Each structure stands twice: as C-alpha cells, then as structure tokens.
Measured scan of single mutants.
Amino acid sequence: SKGEELFTGVVPILVELDGDVNGHKFSVSGEGEGDATYGKLTLKFICTTGKLPVPWPTLVTTLSYGVQCFSRYPDHMKQHDFFKSAMPEGYVQERTIFFKDDGNYKTRAEVKFEGDTLVNRIELKGIDFKEDGNILGHKLEYNYNSHNVYIMADKQKNGIKVNFKIRHNIEDGSVQLADHYQQNTPIGDGPVLLPDNHYLSTQSALSKDPNEKRDHMVLLEFVTAAGITHGMDELYK
C-alpha cells in the first residue's frame, strides 16, 4: 500500500491521552519512536497531572497497542496490513475493555500522521470500578505478559474488528483478565486493505527511568503479524 511507504525508516511517535476513571481525571503524554521494519516501539509516557489513578499496565493496550501500524508484517502478509494502508489520513480506533469482576474502559483514538510524526490521540472513560479493586486499589504488578491480538475484516465499515484477552499479573500471584473489543475505521476515503483473519504477536517490557521524578512508564515492545501461511505457489519458487 502507499501508506506502507511512510514506515520504511524510524518514525517519531506522539501520544496524548485524556482519561476519566470513576471521576478521577488524568492526562498522559508520551513520545518515542517506531520502526515497522522490526516491529519495534520505544516509548516513554508521563502522567502530566500528577499521580496516575490507575496502574500503568492497564493503559498499555490504549497507548502502544494503539499504534499497531508499527507491527512488522512479513512480505507474504503485507496485503493484510490494514493499519499502514489507512495512512497518512489514519484511522479511528474504538475499544471497550472489560476488566473481569470490575469496571470497564471505553476508548476512542485517532491515529494519524501530523507532518512526519505518527500521533495517537485518545479519550478514555472508565466506569463501575471498585475503589478497593485491583485497578483503583493499585494491586497489579508492574510488568506485562505476551499476547496474541486477533484481527478480522469488517467489510460493512471498511475497517477491521479486533479482539483479545489481556492477563494482568496481580501482586498476590493471581491474574486480572481484561477482555478487549476493538473496531478500526479509516478517516480518509481512499482504498484500504481488508485482511484475511490473522493475529499480531506482541511482547512488551515495562521499565522506569531512574532520572524521572514524575509518574511515568518506559515501554519497549515488539509486534509481529502472523497466522497466514505462504501460498503453495510461494513454496515452490
């Protein structure tokens, strides 16, 4: 796709999030870079409003799984890469995230190029959380598991539907599940690639910047598309 050509090198990323969870309002600002050749993201996020009212790991899918245009699609799968094909005009990404036995996040993001920078601007609203639950009670460990993110075409809306389940580790050794339902639709009216069913395999590492006084998260992530085999004719070339 034409959009794919915008991702040949390292691309700067800007992320802006405004959130409200159970009436606790907050903002997060992030910057870093993405390299789609390797499916690599390096980002640093800062809570610009003081202390973040929710655990950082609960925002990873909104912040970095928010820029799935940096996923590495192998050559034989490039015609299934909706995310890059929607660029530079970008796409709207909407999600509902259900935390098992707790509340939910609803998010709406616009992901697009502004100049040479890929920008992810998000509004997040969280409701029905227990004040002493795993999320508002800050009981999650500061780490992140690997996940597969399942993608299918949504021809009606000229976009994709995505769903997956995140496993958050809790300090007591148990797990907090979070079910994600995602819809992506193009902002522009140019042609986009509608994929066959496949998935993104994601690995994320969270860390801290020892010199950063503000509440923050440093993230390194690798994302690769998989799940579609080479056609038989490919094998015999």
Rank of each mutant, 00 (worst) to 15 (best):
K2Q: 14
K2M: 11
E4R: 14
E4K: 13
E4D: 09
L6P: 07
F7I: 04
F7S: 03
F7H: 12
T8A: 12
V11M: 05
V11L: 07
I13T: 02
I13L: 09
L14Q: 14
V15I: 12
E16V: 12
E16G: 03
D18H: 14
D20N: 11
V21L: 04
N22D: 05
N22T: 01
N22K: 03
N22S: 05
N22H: 04
K25T: 06
K25Q: 13
K25N: 11
S27R: 12
S29F: 10
S29T: 15
E33A: 10
E33K: 09
G34C: 01
G34D: 00
D35V: 04
D35K: 03
A36P: 10
T37N: 14
Y38D: 09
K40N: 08
K40E: 04
L41Q: 01
L41P: 01
T42P: 01
T42I: 13
L43Q: 01
L43P: 00
I46F: 06
I46V: 14
T49I: 02
T49A: 04
G50S: 02
G50D: 02
P53A: 02
W56R: 00
P57A: 08
T58I: 02
T58A: 05
L59H: 00
T61A: 14
T61S: 15
T62S: 15
T62N: 01
L63V: 09
S64T: 04
Y65C: 00
G66V: 00
G66D: 00
G66C: 00
G66S: 00
V67E: 05
Q68R: 01
Q68L: 01
Q68P: 03
C69S: 04
F70I: 06
F70S: 03
S71I: 06
R72C: 14
R72S: 12
Y73C: 01
H76N: 12
H76L: 09
M77R: 05
M77K: 03
K78R: 12
S85P: 04
A86V: 09
A86S: 10
A86T: 12
M87R: 01
M87K: 00
M87V: 03
P88S: 05
E89A: 07
G90S: 00
V92G: 03
Q93L: 01
Q93R: 00
Q93H: 02
E94V: 05
R95H: 00
I97T: 02
F98Y: 11
F98L: 12
K100Q: 14
K100N: 08
K100E: 10
D101H: 04
D102N: 02
D102E: 13
N104I: 15
N104H: 15
Y105F: 15
Y105H: 01
K106Q: 13
K106M: 08
T107S: 14
V111L: 11
K112E: 03
F113L: 09
F113C: 06
D116V: 07
T117A: 06
N120Y: 02
I122T: 03
I122V: 10
E123G: 04
E123K: 13
K125M: 08
G126S: 02
I127M: 14
D128V: 04
K130M: 09
D132V: 06
G133D: 04
G133R: 04
G133C: 14
N134S: 09
N134Y: 11
I135N: 03
L136R: 09
L136M: 15
L136Q: 04
G137R: 10
K139E: 07
K139M: 12
E141D: 14
Y142H: 08
N143I: 13
Y144F: 12
Y144D: 04
Y144L: 15
N145Y: 10
N145D: 11
H147R: 04
H147Y: 06
N148H: 10
V149I: 14
V149A: 07
Y150H: 08
Y150C: 07
I151V: 10
I151T: 02
D154E: 06
D154A: 13
D154V: 04
K155R: 13
K155Q: 09
Q156R: 11
K157N: 13
K157Q: 07
K157V: 15
N158S: 10
N158H: 04
G159D: 11
G159C: 09
K161Q: 06
K161T: 14
N163I: 09
F164V: 09
F164Y: 08
K165N: 12
I166V: 12
I166M: 06
R167C: 13
R167S: 05
H168L: 08
H168R: 01
N169Y: 08
I170F: 05
E171V: 07
D172A: 06
D172H: 08
D172V: 05
D172G: 13
G173C: 04
G173S: 05
S174N: 06
S174G: 14
Q176R: 02
L177F: 10
L177V: 15
L177R: 08
A178V: 10
D179N: 12
D179A: 05
Y181F: 12
Q182L: 00
Q183L: 11
I187A: 14
I187S: 06
G188A: 02
D189N: 06
D189G: 11
G190V: 15
G190C: 12
P191H: 11
L193Q: 11
L193R: 08
L193P: 07
L194M: 14
P195L: 04
D196A: 14
N197S: 14
N197K: 08
N197I: 09
N197T: 05
H198P: 00
S201G: 06
Q203L: 14
Q203R: 11
A205V: 15
A205G: 04
L206M: 10
L206Q: 02
S207C: 14
K208R: 08
K208Q: 06
D209G: 01
N211S: 12
N211Y: 11
K213R: 13
K213T: 06
K213E: 14
R214L: 06
M217T: 03
M217I: 04
V218D: 02
E221A: 01
T224S: 14
A226P: 13
A226S: 07
A226V: 07
G227V: 09
G227E: 07
I228D: 10
I228T: 11
I228V: 10
T229S: 13
H230N: 13
G231A: 15
G231S: 09
M232I: 13
E234V: 12
E234G: 11
L235M: 05
L235Q: 13
Y236C: 13
